Simulated assay, not measured.
Amino acid sequence: MVEAVWRGLVQAFRLLFTLDPEVLEIVYLTLKVCGLATVISVIIGVPLGIFLALKEFPGRRLVVSLVNTGMGLPPVVVGLWVSFLLWRSGPLGRLGLIYTPTAMVIAQAFIATPMVTGLSMAAVQQLPAKLQAQIMAMGASPWQLYWTIIREARLGLLAAVIAGFGAVVSEVGAASMVGGNIMHHTRVLTTATVMEVSRGHFDLAMALGFILLGLAFSITAFLTFLQQKARGVPGNGRVK
């Protein structure tokens, strides 16, 4: 086992440092699909989470329950429904999106959006209960209110972004169902790893796994740096 892990690590470095075209193509598509899905989930999820945290309206509890349910929604279920919508005989089949990177972005955005929404809502709800009234009493406009709330809850909102990215970068079920794992078209690191395991190519699968871990760690570390910088924590760990 240790030998297999070591061979996989060595092969991962070899594939990266020799700029293997196939691996670079897979890494690029992984970044593209995961990045777009995360951006879409943030654009939808953060405003929706803030709205649900600040506003009371009929049916709010039902909407919150749906969001919380969506946070634990199995990816294969998402893949099933997106496949149904985009399949050639489905409601959106005429768009020709099935087995394309766009279909993968749609599926992963569906997975990440409830996660970002729920955590954004929780981040805002942790703020002092009277903060909204105090801001409005100072004559702030609705846009100024929302911007102030975003600034005050920025640590929790960045955590929501990190969680959303983590949900999409590690997803494989929905990506396989709507993307098809087609070489030079829809193959990403997760689906490529599963495929190599099924073929018995454990060294290559281990190498792709290490590359995926490195990619996920690098982006998450960058987002964490932004989060901790917003908190005002210098390198020695003391709060300013």
Rank of each mutant, 00 (worst) to 15 (best):
E196S: 11
A230E: 04
A167E: 09
V64T: 04
A160D: 01
G118Q: 02
L85Y: 01
L66R: 01
L92Q: 05
Q227R: 14
Q126S: 15
A112G: 09
C34L: 05
I135R: 10
L80A: 12
L155R: 11
S89Y: 08
I40K: 04
S89R: 11
D20M: 14
G49K: 05
G179K: 15
Q108W: 11
L157Y: 01
Y28V: 13
V42W: 00
G237K: 13
G118E: 01
T224F: 12
R231E: 10
H201C: 09
I43E: 02
A133V: 10
L29S: 03
A174G: 01
V39Q: 00
K240T: 12
L131D: 03
L212Q: 10
W143P: 00
G8E: 03
L127P: 00
E22Q: 15
G96D: 03
R238Q: 11
A103D: 03
A174Y: 05
R231G: 14
V172N: 10
D20P: 10
A221N: 05
R7I: 08
L212E: 04
L97E: 11
S120I: 10
A103V: 08
V2R: 15
S65C: 06
G118W: 08
L54E: 02
M138A: 15
T100G: 02
T190H: 06
F13L: 14
S176W: 12
I150D: 00
L86R: 00
M104S: 08
S218Y: 08
Q132E: 14
Q11S: 13
A12D: 00
V10A: 09
P58L: 12
S198R: 04
Y28K: 14
V178W: 02
V161W: 08
A230H: 03
A112Q: 11
V168M: 02
G164L: 13
G173L: 09
A112M: 08
P128V: 11
D203R: 15
S176K: 14
F210P: 04
W6K: 15
G72E: 03
N68M: 11
R88S: 07
M121W: 04
V67D: 02
G200I: 08
S141E: 02
L16C: 01
Y99K: 05
G72F: 04
I26A: 09
G232E: 14
Q144A: 08
G45Q: 12
V161Q: 05
T148D: 02
M104N: 07
P21Q: 15
R88K: 10
L208M: 13
G156I: 12
G93T: 13
A167P: 02
F13V: 13
M183W: 13
F84M: 11
G96W: 09
G59F: 14
G49V: 09
I111V: 15
S141R: 05
L215Y: 11
G180F: 05
R231N: 06
T224A: 09
V194Q: 07
V5L: 14
M195N: 11
A159F: 10
T193C: 12
L52I: 09
L208H: 08
T113P: 04
L95E: 01
K55N: 12
L223C: 04
R94A: 01
T38W: 12
G72W: 04
F225Y: 13
R88V: 04
R151V: 10
A103H: 06
T190N: 03
V105S: 07
T191E: 03
R7N: 12
G96I: 09
L204M: 13
G70L: 03
F202E: 00
G214P: 05
V116I: 10
